[in-house]
Design a binder for these strands. Structure first.
Lengths: 222, 222
DNA sequence: CGGATGCTTGAGAATCATCAAACTCCGTGG
DNA sequence: CCACGGAGTTTGATGATTCTCAAGCATCCG
């Protein structure tokens, strides 16, 4: 069941979406920058990224999409970014005209747009003003639900250690291209955090944060 | 007449907007990050910026708004950025409920959102991957209409010099905070461009580009 | 078990930031 | 109209951070 279905039930009980689904395996491209845009998509499961390339090959990942996020909307008739799966992904497909005729769908798309805009503003601050350490710390905190934001829940209780395992779902290169750094810098910062005892690298793709508050203090937002 | 009025006439000929206007003088703040959000605004004349601050005072300008741009939409009930006038500004004010009940207004807001999103993607590439020179060149090109984009008009004709005067409407500090640089770096890059004979600084606020194509070549997009 | 991909570490270089000082522009008031 | 003052800008010297290049290492998967 899609997030939109959930919302439909909550808000009006109207019928479910048409049900066209699409699957991608890891690192498969959904669409390329410049492709004709005729559908929008909702991520049901898995992780995707939007990125842009400069002619000399430099890449910037502009957005990371998770379950509930939508992608594919555009002002023009072509996509302004390339969309690629980071993991295996399941998508809900919506036709453009389907969106135009459903006020409910339109409303949900709008909410997604506003939420993406807000996140892009935050990421702009990260890219424009934060140090490498602050960028990586912010990235790690973004993977811990209910922590680090405006309404941070704080440590669970004062005695229990403030730990949490997070799955990156991205290679070092993808993280670097997301944070505006090089792969070496990302690696060095992670090693620093290891040496400080703030994290443990469980697998390349999975990090155990030993002290969530400690990482949060490094984000530049406190 | 607002851009929205224009669109209304083009698309449906419906009645003009309610007509509540608001004026700001240069460097006046329209709203602060965290303020309760109950209206949205359209810039009719002048230039504004949205910015965010880190607790230690670092500032990042996340968007520059010009005539036709809208601001003030949010997912929550508070603004995620501060909005400040860069020049004297005239605004059209819309109540939130006004937007909710007007499909036409909603449609226009949506177009603005999508256009802002696209621009934020471009700016993300600038902040994440471009050199200081490329950032300043990109900034200058953004002030030259019909040039540098996907459908660049090219030099007017092959014999005439490819020149153009642009008004910055921003101090060096504001430009630096927009481009993720320091004021000194912005100044040094401008001096380099002067020495190369690509630009002349007419007033602090006004630059004569001697060779638009030459600047465009420095944006990293060619 | 072995190969390949991805990750880490080191040394050196480049870019940009910082600190400090001098200069220019611009509006004000004499 | 010109002198003055202050804000904003430019320039220089130095330093920190991050990038680049290169090599070695770990991890993952067949």
């Amino acid at each position: 069941m899609t997030e939109l279905d959930n919302e439909m039930h909550r808000e009006s009980g109207s019928k479910s979406s048409s049900g066209r689904k699409h699957r991608l395996s890891a690192h498969e491209v959904l669409f390329y920058e410049g492709d004709r845009a005729d559908r929008i998509y909702e991520v049901l499961d898995g992780v995707m990224m939007l990125y842009k390339l400069l002619p000399d090959g430099r890449r910037q990942v502009v957005y990371v999409l998770r379950a509930g996020d939508m992608l594919g909307f555009t002002n023009h008739d072509t996509f302004d970014c390339t969309a690629e799966a980071l993991t295996a992904v399941e998508l809900q497909v919506y036709e453009t005209r389907e969106v135009a005729t459903s006020p409910l769908l339109q409303h949900y798309v709008n909410r997604c747009l506003l939420s993406q805009m807000e996140h892009l503003h935050e990421h702009t601050v990260l890219l424009g003003r934060k140090s490498a350490m602050e960028r990586v710390a912010t990235f790690l905190m973004s993977l811990v639900p209910d922590r680090g934001g405006a309404n941070c829940a704080g440590p669970a209780n004062r005695d229990a250690p403030d730990m949490r395992s997070v799955v990156l779902s991205m290679t070092r290169q993808e993280i670097a291209d997301y944070l505006g750094l090089t792969i070496e810098t990302v690696s060095r910062v992670i090693s620093q955090l290891k040496r400080k005892g703030l994290i443990k690298v469980e697998k390349q793709d999975s990090i155990h944060i030993q002290n969530v508050c400690g990482i949060c203090q490094l984000t530049g937002m406190h």
